[in-house]
Design a protein around this nucleic acid. Structure first.
Length: 563
RNA sequence: GCCCCGAUAGUUCAGUGGAUAGAACGAGGCCCUCCUAAGGCUUAGACGCAGGUUCGAUUCCUGCUCGGGGCGCCA
């Protein structure tokens, strides 16, 4: 129950021509104006009145009951002064009742959802650019589950194709190799394929062999890609990222699911074999207006499949699962590709997964490239972050044992990277900067964790378990501002769902943590002047912590009790 | 050439068709006999350019400039 709703009802009763969406409530720029503001431009227009006049009339005519202490009009704005204790108790009760579900709208309840993310080549240790996909995907997975969806997260393992073939070819003794060797081997193999036509030819032959089911070739691919996949998943696991199902691309080299699609294309005269014997699709026949991206190749001249063909089959496989939410996280380079895929699927009468695009993380001197071994590896980043965090934790938590301190340091490292990536909009390029990404102060994940630790410390000292007292009291603007912030969480979650992005959640977590810090400095809890205030402030701390926990959970960041 | 995305303080990012555009880092000045200084207070500092729509545009539209991505046997 948001304070805004209880204010809207009497207004709508007094002015039947208005709808809830005409009433724009917000927090006033200064708290001395009021606790909640109503902007009247929209409603006044509908009623054909001047906004200031409407605000005056509304303040005079509408009875808001005893929960509203005053309505002050400032030009086109009506500012409400509320009975803060009453509203405050409602907010704190809501958090207490809903606990880990506080903020969820439950829209996804009893609905199935499918999310594909990461899906990188099993060729080497993931770099932070790739990890952006995984972090965005994982935060969306958490968001969808929080909203009640029954979600399956899929990782499409690109375990076949030209570049994997080169890697497999270069791994003469895969059994004796470690995951850490792979980056260099992969880079070398790609360089060699460029300069050594025989090597490249052998790669294509290997590819053809595996597609034709040659057992020895399959085994070689499997050993290498398994080693890589295991290594990648372990590194991503450090970030708390998990997958429900791994689907191998190699399972889709020949797929009967495509028969229907290909038939539809033939019917529309969109399928043809070009002069070089490739099987192609002409999207112009399906209504594409630009020459750009008009043609799509499905099969090589030697009959082996291309990525598009295999992914089309995999996408059909996903569509068969009939999820009400079917989302895929992709790099911005896949935009045209996805448009093409959608056209083909539409031509065959199918829907298409909903794509979420993200832009690249760039290095100061250009793009990260695994192929050229020009990367910041995620594992290197995490190690460096952990070692910096360890220094601080060791100095500050001297009463904890080494194992506990190490665990905290790892959580801080993960918080730093996840927060740094998730808080910026997905369609913005990020220029990677070591010092900035490793910072633990300011607008960072560790700052939010620090607020959590402070709350935990207060609750330990106050020996409070956070029960809401019968009589909730508060006396300062700071306490009210914190309550208003807590109340806003549900709306933030809805915005995140609409935008398909947890960036608003990250921003919110920061705002809430900062708001709490203001409270921390202004309002003593343990040493509160009265028992009633001590109890209410403890409760407010507990509600803040629950809300922070819920927000951090969506971001995949561990709230800490000590740091 | 064509198609997508971006441009807000020195830097990295938020944000909004309407009240005084928010933070952080960096720079200057302060605060630990006070629930964790990974903190707080304080000073200075910003909507790329040009048009248009609107009572009102940083926000919507068009053009331009700059940056990123893409455009037939890579994935």
């Amino acid at each position: 129950m948001s304070p805004f709703d209880t204010l809207a009802d009497p207004i709508l009763a007094a002015y039947p021509d208005l709808a809830r969406s005409d009433l724009a409530f917000s927090v006033p720029p200064k708290l001395n104006l009021g606790d909640v503001a109503l902007r009247t431009f929209e409603a006044a227009r509908k009623l054909k009145m001047a906004p200031p006049a409407f605000a005056q009339q509304l303040a005079a005519d509408v009875d808001f009951g005893e929960d509203v202490e005053a309505v002050n009009v400032a030009g086109p704005y009506a500012n409400f002064k509320l009975n803060r204790a009453t509203f405050g108790k409602r907010i704190v009760d809501a958090v207490s009742d809903q606990g880990t579900q506080y903020g969820s709208s439950g829209v996804g309840r009893s609905q199935k959802a499918l999310l594909e993310h990461t899906s990188i080549n099993p060729n080497a240790s993931p770099h932070v650019g790739r990890a952006r996909n995984a972090m965005i995907g994982d935060s969306l997975a958490r968001l969808f589950r929080f909203e009640g969806y029954d979600l399956e997260v899929q990782y499409y393992v690109n375990d076949i194709g030209r570049q994997i073939a080169f890697l497999v070819l270069a791994c003469e003794d895969p059994a004796g190799m470690s995951f850490d060797d792979m980056l260099q081997t992969y880079a070398d193999a790609n360089a060699r394929a460029e300069s050594d036509p025989q090597f490249a030819e052998a790669g294509y032959q290997l590819l053809k062999d595996i597609e034709e089911g040659e057992p020895e070739a399959q085994k070689r691919f499997r050993v290498v890609t398994d080693l890589c996949l295991k290594g990648q998943v372990a590194v991503l696991g450090r970030l708390g990222i998990k997958y429900d199902r791994f689907v191998r691309e190699s399972e889709f080299v020949k797929d009967e699911r495509l028969e229907g699609v290909l038939d539809s294309l033939r019917t529309k005269d969109a399928l043809f074999t070009d002069e070089e014997d490739r099987v192609m699709v002409d999207l112009k026949k399906l209504g594409r207006e630009y020459d750009e991206g008009r043609y799509v190749a499905l099969l090589r001249s030697n009959g082996s499949s291309l990525y598009f063909y295999r992914d089309l089959a995999y996408t059909m496989f996903k569509l068969e699962q009939d999820a009400s939410l079917n989302v895929i996280v992709l790099g911005e380079d896949h935009l045209l590709y996805m448009q093409q895929l959608q056209m083909i699927l539409e031509a065959a009468g199918h829907g298409c997964p909903e794509p979420i695009y993200y832009s690249y993380i760039l290095l100061k001197d250009g793009k990260m490239s695994t192929r050229q071994a020009q990367v910041i590896l995620l594992s290197d980043f995490l190690d460096e972050a952990r070692s910096r965090a360890t220094e601080k934790v060791d100095a500050q938590c001297t009463d904890l044992d080494t194992k506990e301190r190490q665990a905290i340091a790892e959580h801080v490292a993960v918080a730093a990277i996840r927060f740094a990536i998730l808080r910026v909009g997905a369609n913005k390029n990020v220029i990677f900067d070591w010092e900035q990404s490793l910072s633990f102060s300011g607008d960072t994940g560790p700052y939010v964790q620090y607020s959590c630790a402070r709350i935990a410390s207060i609750l330990r000292k106050a020996e409070s378990r956070g029960e809401v007292p019968a009589e909730f009291t508060l006396e300062t603007d700071t306490e009210w501002a914190l309550l208003a912030k807590i109340d806003a969480f549900g709306e933030v979650v809805q915005t995140a769902m609409q935008q398909r992005s947890c960036a608003p959640v990250a921003q919110y977590a920061l705002d809430l943590a900062r708001q709490f810090t203001g409270f921390y400095h202004d309002c003593p809890v343990v040493a509160a002047p009265t028992e009633a205030l001590r109890a209410s402030r403890s409760t407010l701390c507990a509600a803040t912590r629950q809300t922070l926990d819920n927000a951090l959970h969506l971001l995949g960041i561990q709230p800490l009790d000590r740091m």
